[in-house]
Amino acid sequence: MATITRYPFVRHLRTAPTSHVVQLRDGTVRRSGTGLSFWFRPLTAVLSEVPVDDRELPLVARARTADLQEVTAQVTVSYRFEDPELVARRLDFGIDPGTGTWTASPLDQVAHLLGELASGHVMDALAGSTLREAISSGTGPLRARVTAALLADDRVAATGLRVLGARIGSVRADADLERALQTPAREQAQSEAERSTFERRALAVERDRAIAENEMTNRIELAGREQQLVAQEGTNARARADEAAAAALIEARAHADRQRVLAAAAAEAARLQGEAEGAAESARMAAYADVPYEVLLAVALRELAGNLPAIGQLTLTPDALTGALTALTAGRGE
């Protein structure tokens, strides 16, 4: 709002950069501009302040669809005062020269005008659509139709306004009716969710089955490999046993051959030794054949004496000597 400073007989007005002030005196425009600051006489000046910034007007528009159902659309209209002097002539934006406040409610008038126009265009746009089409078609087509209709409306241009655009927040039906319309979609979504859950479970079961089959295949393969390993180990053990048996047989045969050779050598040595001893004995006996008996007896006594143990004392009694001589005599007689 404008700031007015009071002085005796005169006033000073200072406006914001987004306010357009029109000063009339005797029905003639004396000053008109944005962000003005000037002196004026309160008894002769007629002042109007029109905001020139962009403004938003939220409203709720009710309409009836082609199937006679009530719907509610949340609409936001963006607008601006394009021609402030024209607006000041068509709407009451006059301000009190003493306080700088509006003497009327011009923004309410603008809101009523734009609200009626936007609601009418919403009703016209939804009149040819069914309830399901109005709710499910989205807000884009409705926003485009309402914006185009407001831009082409002559009353808006005649008031000095410029509509920048319209936004549609939502199009809603009665709560019970909307829930009834949402039921098929909810059921379909629930069915989709259940089908997705079933598919996930089926996929999980399929994955578990694939994992189990893979594990079984691995176990079968491992069992086959283990069987091959056992067979190979048995073959290796048999080969080792055969090799050990062959080596033992060869060793036994070699040992037997050695023993046989040793035995043959020992027998040959014994035979040769026996033959040598026999030959020696024969030669000795042959040598003794022509020796006289007394010589042989003396040799025998010498041999006997050489083989007797050491005698410290020898006592000869007549009886022992008689027996020895008797035996010696008996030997000669034979």
Score class of each variant (00 low, 15 high):
residue 1 M to T: 00
residue 3 T to H: 12
residue 4 I to V: 06
residue 9 F to E: 01
residue 12 H to A: 08
residue 13 L to G: 15
residue 14 R to M: 08
residue 18 T to Q: 07
residue 19 S to R: 13
residue 22 V to F: 03
residue 28 T to C: 03
residue 28 T to A: 14
residue 30 R to A: 15
residue 31 R to T: 02
residue 32 S to T: 03
residue 32 S to W: 06
residue 33 G to S: 09
residue 43 L to S: 13
residue 46 V to G: 15
residue 48 S to P: 06
residue 49 E to Q: 11
residue 59 L to G: 05
residue 59 L to H: 01
residue 61 A to W: 06
residue 64 R to F: 15
residue 65 T to N: 10
residue 65 T to V: 08
residue 68 L to V: 02
residue 71 V to W: 11
residue 71 V to H: 14
residue 82 E to D: 07
residue 83 D to A: 13
residue 83 D to S: 11
residue 90 R to D: 02
residue 94 G to I: 01
residue 100 G to S: 08
residue 100 G to E: 03
residue 101 T to M: 12
residue 108 D to E: 14
residue 109 Q to M: 13
residue 116 E to M: 05
residue 117 L to N: 05
residue 121 H to C: 00
residue 122 V to Y: 01
residue 123 M to W: 01
residue 128 G to E: 12
residue 131 L to K: 04
residue 149 A to F: 10
residue 149 A to R: 06
residue 150 L to N: 02
residue 154 D to E: 13
residue 155 R to H: 06
residue 155 R to F: 08
residue 159 T to L: 04
residue 160 G to F: 02
residue 160 G to A: 07
residue 161 L to N: 00
residue 163 V to R: 11
residue 164 L to M: 09
residue 165 G to C: 02
residue 174 D to H: 10
residue 175 A to D: 11
residue 177 L to G: 12
residue 177 L to T: 14
residue 188 Q to D: 07
residue 189 A to G: 08
residue 190 Q to I: 03
residue 192 E to D: 08
residue 193 A to Y: 12
residue 202 A to S: 12
residue 203 L to F: 01
residue 206 E to R: 06
residue 209 R to M: 01
residue 217 T to S: 05
residue 219 R to I: 00
residue 223 A to V: 00
residue 225 R to W: 13
residue 228 Q to C: 03
residue 230 V to F: 10
residue 231 A to W: 03
residue 231 A to M: 14
residue 232 Q to K: 15
residue 240 R to T: 09
residue 240 R to Y: 01
residue 244 A to N: 09
residue 245 A to V: 09
residue 254 A to I: 10
residue 256 A to R: 07
residue 258 R to V: 00
residue 261 V to S: 14
residue 262 L to N: 07
residue 264 A to F: 05
residue 265 A to W: 02
residue 269 A to S: 03
residue 275 E to D: 07
residue 276 A to C: 04
residue 278 G to K: 12
residue 284 R to Y: 08
residue 284 R to M: 14
residue 284 R to S: 10
residue 285 M to Q: 13
residue 289 A to F: 09
residue 290 D to P: 00
residue 291 V to I: 08
residue 294 E to L: 04
residue 294 E to T: 10
residue 296 L to H: 03
residue 296 L to T: 01
residue 299 V to L: 15
residue 301 L to F: 03
residue 301 L to M: 09
residue 306 G to Y: 09
residue 306 G to M: 15
residue 306 G to D: 05
residue 309 P to S: 12
residue 312 G to D: 13
residue 313 Q to Y: 07
residue 317 T to Q: 04
residue 318 P to V: 05
residue 318 P to N: 11
residue 318 P to Q: 14
residue 323 G to Q: 14
residue 328 L to C: 07
residue 328 L to I: 08
residue 330 A to W: 03
residue 331 G to E: 13
